[in-house]
Design a protein around this nucleic acid. Structure first.
Length: 488
DNA sequence: AAAAAAG
């Protein structure tokens, strides 16, 4: 079997790699590293989770090892579609370049520009960037790109989805044509092919199989939720979670508002859960992700910001709170589990609303996930419609039908939440407890504070709901103020 | 029915 030591890498790089615990390269690493080391362009058709990051980082370190950068003249660029991905590449670079004197800068939006500029002035070898911030800094003459000898474009098809292709094209044109280019994409739509034909020189094409579609370590389930009320899905999710022994898992929702609601609902019910999506503060996004990686956070409730690319090793469970709008995203979402020989389980909550999207998923993966028989007690729902119809419909914050749980006294726990006691998987029947969970979630640094327009409205809303109407009493966590009111 | 990224 091929080892890293067979790929022509230097002592220092091998030592750094060994310290990360890896000794066997993945297929993309095994094929791309020797090619990239010769200086040729690489077109890598590979999905997330195949080990792309090391595949381009290691040859980059070797290439840069010789020279030194000058102020504002980086010698290599890595372009990533999301800030989190860029952050991860930086982290990997830091590890692999441990025995080299190489500087890097993380150029992403949502954070202060000053630190980034200061770093650029001191001189960095590698820029790890999202396209917007890189171009912004370029336009402000904070960075030159004519000293670039290597450029990496990662997740190109996703960049296309996000409308970044013109930006990428511009960045290509700002770098010298003599540069070496490593270009990665999971799929090759025509627009991406055009881009590679325009900017890559006789690239060596390296293709590795998509792990998620072919991965037999993943067991997929579908749980039918026979109610249109979204609340039913939250009940079903909690019931499902209680039957599982979860180390860590991701709950994917289609909408950011649902991410907030589901995360909040889970927290209120005693689960160790936190939201992540693009409207949350960048520092909070990073903190949440960090806690999740460290195992301090059990359930990450996420929009598709986390579907692709995020390097979270060994996620045991993936939950699709909704069937994704694009069937492709299903593959990416479940690809977060079953990595590196580990087993993983995925669950999809299928309500009547999801049928159409679910059909597309089944068509794509060419098989039907196993039907999960789980007795879920939806009785808490039955009175909700009655309540609703009794009251005239008003503004959303005030019309919430009151379930019986709102009338019961509730305790406020001063301590952190303890995750719900895991129940063995064999136990497939759960009667949903409606009360129980102590209030838990710590207040978060609120985005609401920055949003002057919405702030007032939210304050009114939270005032209207204060005291016995929310599970938080007078202590409405700030992060809740910007979310849609919880309906159960 | 969406999300992401520049401010």
């Amino acid at each position: 079997m091929t080892k890293f030591s067979d790929l022509g890498l230097s002592e220092q790089v091998l030592k750094a790699v060994a310290e990360t615990g890896y000794d066997t390269p993945t297929p993309i690493q095994e094929q791309a590293i020797p090619v990239a080391m010769t200086g040729l362009d690489v077109l890598g058709i590979a999905q997330t989770g195949t080990g792309k990051t090391a595949a381009f980082t290691l040859p980059m370190i070797e290439k840069l090892a010789a020279g030194r950068s000058r102020a504002r003249m980086p010698r290599a660029i890595v372009l990533e579609p999301t800030r989190e991905l860029a952050d991860q590449v930086a982290e990997a670079f830091e590890k692999y370049a441990k025995y080299h004197k190489l500087n890097w800068a993380l150029l992403i939006g949502g954070v202060s520009m000053a630190d980034q500029v200061a770093k650029l002035d001191k001189g960095v070898d590698v820029l790890i960037a999202t396209p917007g911030r890189l171009l912004d800094l370029f336009e402000r003459s904070k960075v030159m790109l004519n000293g670039v000898t290597m450029m990496v474009v990662d997740e190109a098809d996703r960049m296309l989805d996000m409308g970044f292709i013109p930006d990428i094209e511009r960045i290509f044109k700002l770098t010298p044509p003599t540069r070496q280019t490593l270009f990665f994409s999971a799929t090759m739509p025509p627009e991406i092919t055009r881009l590679t034909e325009a900017f890559l020189k006789n690239p060596v094409r390296i293709e590795v199989s998509r792990p998620a579609t072919t991965n037999e370590n993943i067991t997929q389930y579908v749980l039918r939720v026979p109610h249109k009320d979204v609340k039913a899905k939250r009940i079903a999710l909690r019931a499902l979670l209680k039957t599982l022994d979860i180390q860590n898992g991701i709950v994917f929702c289609n909408r950011k508002t649902d991410v907030d609601i589901v995360a909040k609902s889970l927290s209120v019910h005693g689960f160790n859960a936190a939201p992540i999506h693009g409207d949350l503060d960048q520092s909070l996004r990073m903190k949440t992700l960090d806690a999740f990686r460290k195992g301090e956070l059990t359930l990450l409730v996420a929009s598709d910001v986390a579907a692709r690319g995020l390097d979270i090793p060994a996620v045991g469970h993936v939950f699709n709170f909704d069937a994704p709008i694009h069937a492709d995203d299903y593959v990416h979402r479940i690809g977060r589990t079953g990595r590196a020989g580990r087993t993983g389980e995925t669950y999809l909550l299928l309500s009547p609303h999801d049928e159409k999207n679910y059909d597309k998923v089944v068509k794509l993966i060419k098989k039907e996930p196993a039907n999960l028989e789980l007795d879920v007690d939806y009785s808490a729902l039955s009175d909700a419609p009655r309540e609703g119809s009794r009251q005239p419909r008003r503004e959303s914050g005030k019309t919430r039908g009151r379930s019986q749980r709102d009338h019961k006294p509730r305790e406020r726990s001063a301590t952190q939440s303890a995750p719900v006691e895991p129940v063995k998987a064999e136990k497939k029947s759960v009667s949903e407890e409606i009360i129980s969970a102590p209030d838990v979630q710590e207040a978060r640094p609120a985005k609401a504070a920055r949003r002057t327009g919405k702030k007032e409205k939210n304050e009114e809303k939270s005032k209207a709901k204060s005291s016995n109407e929310t599970p938080f009493g007078d202590h409405m966590p700030a992060f809740l103020m910007r979310a849609t009111p919880l309906k159960d």
